[in-house]
Amino acid sequence: MSKAYSTDKLIYGGVDVGASHTKVALIDTAGHLCGHGVRKSGVNFSATAEMCLADALQMADCTTNQVAHTVSTGYGRQNVTYATESRTEIGCHAKSCYFYFPEAITVIDIGGQDNKIIKLDPHGRRISFKMNRKCAAGTGAFLEEMATRLDIPLSDMDGLARKSTETVNIGSYCTVFSATEVLKYVRQGKKVEDIIKGLFVSVIRRVLEMDALTEKVVMTGGVVAHNPYFIDLSEEQIGRGIWTPPLPQLAGAIGAALYAKANQTSDNE
């Protein structure tokens, strides 16, 4: 990330305290990302948000005094002491995706704890949204659980899935039942690569059954950020292209920063 921004410039902050990770995005008055920070949320959301801000400020070569306004989002949005306003992550993901794709779109966010499908009209207004049901199937938490069971690092999943030559079918709604299915394939001697691809496809199917996709599809969230193969597999499932913003894991934080900027500049696009 370039540090070409003048220190006397005003910047706007967005903080997304998710169940898994906390993300901070800093944008300039033109809406360009000038700094960001990502850390595991841990058990002290306030402290993590502070540390992410420090990381982002360092990257942007800015000081706290330059942050004109900050909006928080995510499950821990109320814990961000330096934010003056909060918005839901649904609104922030929508705001961010429309910034990058200003047309009618369907946003699919696959987060650590939940998924969202958000539909926007050509003016960026939300027409509808859906969150996943109460189970973990179809979320990042599901993949984390499965990585643990397969005894492989989460970061290896994307690379392994790409090596798959045969997709195994994992069809259950339930994380516990899915784990049993995985055990069955392990017992049958199926390759780990094939099982992981099966898990990816399972998550995608759980997400796609949440709602009909009618417009251009944009995917966000940590799962697609760290597993880009997800996009390829999702495209296969829906039979058309899928777009992502430049940093999908930061979509919520950037959306929050855009809200911060809009509130300060009467910029309500």
Binding site: Y75, R87, T88, E89, I90, G91, R125, R126, S128, F129, M131
Partner: peptide, 9 residues
């Protein structure tokens, strides 16, 4: 979150 997002909508 669901309700707040709906009111935002």
């Amino acid at each position: 979150t669901n309700i707040e997002a709906f009111i935002e909508q």
